[in-house]
Design a binder for these strands. Sequence first.
DNA 1: GTCAATATCGAACGAACGTTCGATATTTAT
DNA 2: ATAAATATCGAACGTTCGTTCGATATTGAC
Lengths: 232, 232
Amino acid sequence: MMNFKQFKKKYQLKDSELFAEFYDLFEETIDIKNRNIAVDKLAIIINATFKLSASQSFSNMSLRQLSDETQISMGGLYAYIKNKQQLSLYIHQFLNHFAENIMIQVDISDDYQTLENTIKSHIYLSEIMQPWFFFAFMESKNLNKEQKKYAIQSELMMENKIMQAISKGQELKIYSNTLSPKTMATHIKPLLHDWYLKRWKYKQRKINIEEFCFSVMAFLNHGISLPHTLNE
Amino acid sequence: MMNFKQFKKKYQLKDSELFAEFYDLFEETIDIKNRNIAVDKLAIIINATFKLSASQSFSNMSLRQLSDETQISMGGLYAYIKNKQQLSLYIHQFLNHFAENIMIQVDISDDYQTLENTIKSHIYLSEIMQPWFFFAFMESKNLNKEQKKYAIQSELMMENKIMQAISKGQELKIYSNTLSPKTMATHIKPLLHDWYLKRWKYKQRKINIEEFCFSVMAFLNHGISLPHTLNE
DNA sequence: GTCAATATCGAACGAACGTTCGATATTTAT
DNA sequence: ATAAATATCGAACGTTCGTTCGATATTGAC
């Protein structure tokens, strides 16, 4: 399993690359024909959406604010998005697309390492795509059922991967079977969310991502109990 | 430490009692003079607010919807609330008031039990006040700094109680000191949130509140590792 | 340099919002 | 029974919202 530095080098794209993928994914619903122009402006629009949605909520962000922030007129915006709701859906869907592509590459060859690999990959991924994860988490509750189906696929995939890793581990007597894999996965998920939901808190406390991973794994392995009880 | 049945009997109030407390707390800012009328209508208004805010968000709930749901006219509503923002603040502040009163009673006489008592009390409390907790969690991000100060006092008190219990436990070598009390508290909090944020999920899986408490404590004590390693 | 294609603009529209307020209904006190 | 106090009503006001669209500016092809 690579560390964050290696992960970042392999997967983190520049805006010009990231939003080129974005444009290609939604090309047929975007009015702008010129790929270079579209990629630049999409980066501006989506990043402004993140900024404005973070300080209020997406539904409280008005398209006039977005127009001000991006320096693109109201009519201009509508060349890039079909409507406001679609803008939110684009973000969910692209994150889903991007995340699935990465999580599918997690190394599951070693049963003793699968869970840690999965968890670290998720944390690393949520770091390089922090605004996306933050947005998706905050706004997912405002999606209707049909939209949710398309938006949180990777979220479910993630949960499944954790469950399977635990399930296999329980079979091999690596992990406790006091709790079901589903219950354990349920308890683990919010630990991971904390990294991208409360990033400022960890920055302020000067806890870097590797320390955070260690912390999560330590808690996950022993809870609050004293570790290595056998050796004492 | 009592179980949930005992807790419920001791602390769960009927609407007529709960909103009487509510009315008394905010009496001077409510136009209605008749206490009985006010208590009845406040129960209707607040409960309708919970219902409408759950299916959308509070800021997406319009006062016209609230008027429809409560069968109280627009003008009528404004006899009970100063404005829409105040309604949200009332809910935060009352929950704060109510929660603090209960959490202050948690038994901390036995260092080996303090953490479990605190956690169970919080879970029990969040059960009998579920809509309040759900609302407060979802809407707290929309409060400005000044409002937050008044609204999340009990939340911080809760976190402090957990930290202190762990800190004391570390001193007494009950708990591992691999992680700081603050970090552990940070990891524990979302475990507790899950109960009131995803209640339908636990209902569906037929996990009752005592089972949930056991599950949280089990995870918290051993993580995913095999328990009782010494005895094997 | 011209013309067609593309990109951008911002005023305008109807709908929905929070809030107000004078009119009306109901309750309470005498 | 009457008057004063209290509670309720809903139309109306000014704003802001998402969205549209004809006009204008910019770009690319020949």
